[in-house]
Computed example of a mutant assay.
Amino acid sequence: MQVFKVQGMSCGHCVRAVSAALLALDADAQVDVDLAGGEVRVESRLSAEQVLAALREEGYEAQPA
C-alpha cells in the first residue's frame, strides 16, 4: 500500500475528485482518503509517480508519506 500526504483536501468533493482521478487510471485500485489526516492510501498497480501526477493534476499538492 502506498501512502501520500496531500494538502488542500477539505470536503466530500475532494474525496470524490481524488478517488475518481485514481480510479480512472486503475479501475481496480482501492483508494482510502483521510481528510482529517491529510492522507491518501492507495492499493494499486500504479507507480508512486503516476499517483502523484494524478493528484497534482487534480490540483492537490502531494508527496509520499
Rank of each mutant, 00 (worst) to 15 (best):
R16V: 12
A54W: 03
Q2L: 10
G8I: 08
V42A: 06
L55H: 02
V3N: 14
L55V: 00
L52W: 01
R45F: 07
G38F: 07
L46I: 04
E43M: 14
G8W: 13
S10W: 11
V33T: 00
K5Y: 10
G12S: 02
Q2S: 12
R41N: 02
G37A: 11
A48Q: 14
A53C: 08
E39Q: 15
L22A: 01
Y60M: 04
A24K: 06
E43N: 15
Q2E: 06
C11V: 09
L35I: 03
Q63H: 13
A54R: 08
E49I: 02
G12Y: 01
Q50M: 08
F4L: 02
V15K: 05
R16N: 13
Q2H: 07
R16L: 09
G37W: 01
L52S: 01
L23T: 06
L35P: 04
V42D: 09
L25M: 08
E58M: 02
E61I: 05
E43H: 10
V42Y: 05
Q50I: 05
G59T: 08
G37F: 04
E39N: 13
G37Q: 05
S10A: 13
A36C: 09
Q30I: 10
Y60A: 05
L46P: 03
V6I: 13
A53H: 08
D32W: 11
S19I: 03
G8E: 11
A29P: 03
V18Q: 00
C11F: 10
M1Y: 08
Q30R: 11
L23I: 04
R56P: 03
K5G: 14
E58Q: 11
L46C: 03
A65F: 11
Q63K: 15
A54C: 06
E58I: 00
E49V: 07
S10R: 14
G38L: 03
D28T: 13
L22D: 00
G59I: 08
V40A: 08
A53V: 10
G8N: 12
Q63N: 12
C11G: 10
M1H: 12
D32F: 12
S47M: 07
A62P: 12
L25G: 04
V31I: 04
D34Q: 11
Q7H: 15
Q7S: 15
A24C: 03
L25I: 06
L22E: 00
R41P: 00
V6A: 12
V31Y: 01
C14P: 02
V33I: 02
D32M: 15
A65N: 09
S19A: 05
V33K: 00
A36K: 13
C11R: 09
V42P: 07
L23H: 05
C11H: 12
L25T: 07
P64T: 09
A36R: 14
